[in-house]
Write a protein that binds this DNA or RNA. Structure first.
Lengths: 150, 150
DNA sequence: TATTGTTATACTCTATAACTATA
DNA sequence: TATAGTTATAGAGTATAACAATA
């Protein structure tokens, strides 16, 4: 192999991959704790995030994306609808299916959630010096690309 | 404020914080799915990780660190002991307490878990070019520092 | 006959309340 | 009297199995 990165036979790359994995998992866990609505379960939040990205989806599609079984998604969608966070409409082409989409309330809640987590992360990053922050700023788009690979 | 970073009134910093948050949460979720032992619950895995870092702890200390109530930790420790992943010994100074520590089996399992997640992340990073990987490698120690701040 | 979604039911994980043993 | 841990019991959240409606 000539150019592909990283190469796990090289010490520097092993150390970097290990540091990245450990740091991402740790910061990820702490970010997850910064929640706007404590009454929503992790899967309920995740469904809202998926709907925000995908626009709308059927219960079956949501179940597959969230790795839960269809009966669980039936319950989750019903709870979200009761909380006014999603809307259910009949499927235009298949009367067996339904179309789930987020409400304006959910959109606002997700925006508030992002804002809160960004603020927490920015505050944490104040413990870095300028050179360190510059390295993170340079890596941010790369991490974003990495997150969307595969 | 003169030197503290990041500054959320600067567009570049806002974009970087937002990209970091989004990417870290997304990659973190995907890393979490790379599990060695599907039969262990998230909290059971977390307890093993805590024991690996701290050496040993009492059930009460573990309950506080994992943010679960003492009766839940009683059950978790009992399950981990039944699986041969932790050892319970009497506390040397207080006969009310117990000392929980990880077994060699647990240590090997955690090492295998790290290896599997590193391999997954390294494979994902093969979708980057050399310049991008270099930016990540430079940022890795900074992310690790960030993860341990506060 | 296959697929989508729901209902009925059971299991896992965690919590609260009450209890035992020790400090 | 206070603290560490356990037992008993209840509440989320998810799973499997059986069912209804539609393709």
């Amino acid at each position: 192999m000539l150019t592909n990165m990283p190469d796990l036979s090289h010490g520097d790359d092993v150390a970097a991959v290990n540091a990245l994995r450990s740091a991402i998992m740790r910061i990820g866990r702490r970010l997850k704790h910064q929640r706007v609505d404590e009454s929503l379960s992790p899967t309920e939040m995740s469904v809202l995030g998926t709907l925000a990205r995908c626009g709308s989806a059927t219960p079956g599609e949501l179940a597959r994306k969230e790795h839960v079984q269809p009966p669980s998604m039936t319950r989750i969608v019903a709870l979200l609808e009761a909380k006014g966070l999603v809307r259910l409409e009949p499927h235009p082409e298949d009367r067996r299916q339904k179309v789930v989409s987020q409400t304006e309330t959910a959109e606002a809640m997700l925006e508030e959630s992002r804002r809160k987590r960004n603020a927490w992360l920015a505050q944490l990053a104040e413990g870095l010096d300028e050179a360190e922050w510059e390295k993170l700023r340079a890596a941010a788009p790369v991490l974003e690309k990495l997150a969307h690979l595969q």
